[in-house]
């Protein structure tokens, strides 16, 4: 935590004070200039780089939301089936899912690179959405399966007795009481996407098409940008995921542990 606090302190400091010795834990002068720089409110020497912050945050947001939506619709339904039904091929397909969860995403990227090139999907947000589903979807199915297992099966059984079909029992009866699980799965998916770096760095290289982490990493690898400015962009970029986790923590803990504790 102290580390994060220091990042914040840095982000409101002047570079020259960071380099000063003896060292100050509290900066002698405080400034919001670093934030103004990355938000494009004041001119500075690397404003072209910093100006990409907001556009890339927007891209991150779009990709994160779309992937989350896809995951919740498709993944939740599958998770429900795995929790409730016995069916041929269940064990096998579950094992396959487990395997994909353990897969290094990076091994898929050369294939994405070539296929997306053929399809014209490189440098598009659609491409990223597709690539991100590869590592989020197995996770979501798994988490949701575990979550539905914590909901008493009697609930759907009584719905079936009341004349619902399987889908209605799921859609009208089980889903409405599954808020915490959905929030957990959704927040988790969104967080994975928001923070993802390697895939976006490789697939979306055209300026303006990539997400936030590559832009921040680019500023870091970039000469002539003060560390305090980079710290400001890092802090700003971290905020959404941190807030998401702080706000939905209760549900995330419930949903994630419901899944994991059972194995």
């Amino acid at each position: 935590m102290a580390a994060l606090a220091w990042l914040f302190v840095t982000s409101i400091s002047y570079q020259k004070n960071l380099l000063a010795r003896p060292f100050h834990l509290l900066p002698p002068d405080v400034t919001l200039d670093n934030y103004r720089m990355i938000l494009g409110l004041v001119r500075f020497h690397a404003e072209g780089q910093a100006a990409r912050m907001l556009a890339s945050m927007w891209n991150s947001l779009v990709v994160g939301l779309v992937v989350t939506a896809v995951n919740l619709v498709v993944g939740t339904t599958a998770g429900y089936a795995y929790a409730r039904f016995r069916f041929a091929g269940k064990t096998l397909s579950l094992f396959a899912l487990l395997f994909t969860r353990m897969l290094p995403t990076i091994v898929l990227v050369p294939a994405f690179f070539l296929v997306f090139r053929a399809l014209g999907l490189q440098n598009t947000l659609t491409g990223l959405v597709i690539a991100y589903c590869s590592f989020t979807l197995p996770f979501t199915v798994w988490i949701m399966k575990a979550y539905f297992e914590t909901i008493p099966g009697d609930l759907d059984k009584s719905a079936l007795v009341d004349g619902c079909n399987r889908f209605q029992a799921y859609w009208l009866v089980v889903l409405p009481v599954s808020g915490p699980g959905l929030v957990a799965g959704g927040a988790f998916t969104f967080m994975l996407c928001w923070n993802e770096f390697v895939v976006a760095q490789i697939l979306n290289t055209r300026p303006g098409t990539t997400t936030l982490p590559p832009v921040i990493a680019g500023m870091n690898g970039q000469i002539n940008i003060d560390y305090s400015v980079i710290a400001a962009s890092g802090f700003l970029g971290a905020l959404p995921a941190v807030i998401l986790v702080l706000v939905f923590q209760k549900y995330m803990v419930q949903g994630l542990t419901a899944g994991s504790v059972k194995g």
Binding site: G40, L41, L54, A55, G208
Partner: peptide
């Protein structure tokens, strides 16, 4: 005020 405006402008202008 300007933060908000600039942010909106950046999203609409620099975005896709």
């Amino acid at each position: 005020g300007t933060t908000g405006l600039a942010a909106a402008a950046a999203v609409l202008g620099e975005g896709a």
